[in-house]
Nucleic acid binder design. Structure first.
Lengths: 348, 348
DNA sequence: TTGTAGGCGTTATCAT
DNA sequence: ATGATAACGCCTACAA
């Protein structure tokens, strides 16, 4: 690897100044066609790749946005334990960023342990998208003092920060309402994720909304906690069933719903005949499993896209008032709720 | 957002020079404990985040590695069409990079269309991991002239570049051999991915190896091409079955295997009783579908990790001879090959 | 159309 | 243990 050549080298060989080279590469104005061609040819010939560092320093814009997401896989054991959720968000962010020529820097961080990493990322980017549970609130505040930060899927109200999220609460209310209204079920249990997860909290709140609407007693906490994993969901459902089987288990996400289906099978209970089950997120597996899991579709990729778009907007105009984007969710009817399998359509 | 404060501000308030601040932040040597504490306190108080640009420019190391992966989702329609494969690789890369304090810059590129993007990424990083089919060979060569490049899963022999990949050929040979040896099947068809995919080519080669070993006639091309997608696999299998059903369909990946299972169901053929089916990759869905898909496990996450590790090694020592890492694959027996469902264990 | 020169915020090399 | 000061590679007025 011969040292990366510089703008000086290109300028020297082209017989022009570095300013002209810079202008040519920026595709601006102020040079003749012949100069342009010569410079470009020599740059290509040299295989010159301009230094993003220097460019960023001079123009005070790196063209990089950062994405911090919660580091789950590392503590969990199996690969499938870590939600594909995040992957879709990453893809969405990537898409939105490259659409405007920016790039995405990613890092998995976990509150305390990821502090240093988070700051390291922050030093390299123009702005940051921070997913729920990836760094502490205090650190968010510190970071937000020196660069634009968009909160993603973290429903906590934070002073003056842009926010992008999905309407978890309404989704949970709708799917629970479906169970109550369409299937006449009046004995439902909610299987939650990690208690500190805002997503889990919002979904539980929506569950409660639906119970209240249906005139049913409202619990003050989820019936059990499955940590958002398939194994955790199975475990939680198993111990729940050991006591008393409800007519329906509303799960905080799809992984746990799939785990719950396993627990029902093990307990020789039929789903949905004996116990209806619903999920949340609409991951691919919900389509492949039998019975198909009735769930709530989250626009995960779009979440990532919108977050980056909001960030870019903020970068362009720092004076805008704080922005909040709440993306709609959608109930997806399959058969685990008791609907006939054929009716695999979506309804609002 | 008040302007990001600089090292000058910190130095001034601390009553020391910028050099000292730099030393303190680098956790190096050459300052008293009291100076250190004062500087750190003031830096924290100011919420100072050092500029990665300036730091990179001065130290000629950005602490960022780039990952270029093929941009599939954009052309395909549904989300699930785009292989989860890539997501795992991204996660692995992220893990390996953050383990040493680096960050990963990601971009989806598609040969010609992604040229510009690829160069933009290259300008921002210390080195590049390039996945198969994400940019053209010529562009790889150009980029490799100015920064270290590691090829990932691209089996093409490229002069002097580091390479990391999985042993597709042996995996395909083993799983095909299983069908021939354990199940006595002598009439097999290979369902390939995009003809230009090195992965697909290698797997087909392994398929042929096994046929030759079993004394069976060796075709010179896959029986059909399903583009590595579930829908494509179903379509290809359907038209294959319209002519004549083989005793086994060896699919180039899992998505197509799942599609093929759908086609068999539609044709009122039983799997594996009438036609055995195998996949490749071991994605999560292969466990959830019925029958469970016998497949070849690819260490996708590890692929990403190793690629970044090799890149970091190259960064540390540019003079090493080109490095090749071939990770082993592993046959995972489920029931779509004809084995009893209970025997869900792995074998080499 | 083109060149000159100062500045971007660090790190690193000398000194002291 | 600390301070000057010269890079680092590019952009951008301002001049010519």
């Amino acid at each position: 690897m011969p040292d990366r050549s510089t703008i000086y080298e290109v300028a020297r060989r082209s017989g022009v100044s570095t300013a002209t080279v810079s202008r040519v590469m920026a595709d601006g104005k102020g040079f003749s066609q012949v100069t342009r061609d010569r410079v470009r040819a020599i740059a290509a010939d040299l295989g010159w790749v301009p230094s993003g560092q220097a460019r960023g320093l001079a123009s005070r814009r790196s063209g990089i946005v950062g994405l911090l997401f919660p580091d789950l896989g590392r503590s969990g054991d199996a690969e499938e334990e870590s939600p594909l959720y995040v992957d879709q968000v990453i893809r969405g962010a990537e898409r939105a960023a490259t659409a405007v020529g920016d790039a995405v820097l990613i890092a998995a961080t976990q509150c305390e342990s990821g502090r240093e990493l988070a700051f390291s990322i922050a030093s390299k980017v123009d702005g940051l998208v921070v997913m729920a549970r990836s760094i502490s609130d205090e650190d968010v505040d510190v970071l937000a003092r020196s660069l634009p930060v968009v909160m993603l899927a973290n429903n906590r109200v934070r002073s003056g920060l842009d926010f992008v999220g999905a309407d978890n609460r309404t989704g949970a209310r709708d799917i629970t309402g479906h169970l109550i209204t369409e299937h006449g079920i009046r004995d439902l249990a909610f299987l939650g994720g990690p208690p500190e997860s805002p997503d889990s909290q919002d979904r539980f709140a929506g569950f409660c909304d639906a119970l209240a609407l249906g005139g049913l007693p409202v619990p003050d906490a989820p019936a059990a906690d499955g940590g958002f994993t398939e194994a955790g969901g199975e475990r939680a459902a198993r111990s729940m069933l050991a006591e008393r089987a409800p007519r329906a288990i509303v799960c905080g996400n799809d992984e746990m719903a799939i785990g719950a289906l396993g627990a029902l099978r093990a307990a020789r209970l039929r789903a949905p005949a004996d116990v209806a089950v619903t999920g949340f997120d609409d991951i691919a597996a919900t389509r492949h499993v039998r019975p198909g899991v009735t769930t709530v579709h989250q626009p995960m990729r779009e979440l990532g896209e919108r977050a980056v778009q909001v960030l870019l907007g903020r970068l362009a105009d720092a004076s805008m008032p704080p922005f909040t984007v709440m993306l709609p969710t959608e109930v997806v009817i399959r058969s685990s709720c008791g609907c006939p399998a054929a009716r695999q359509r979506r309804r609002p």
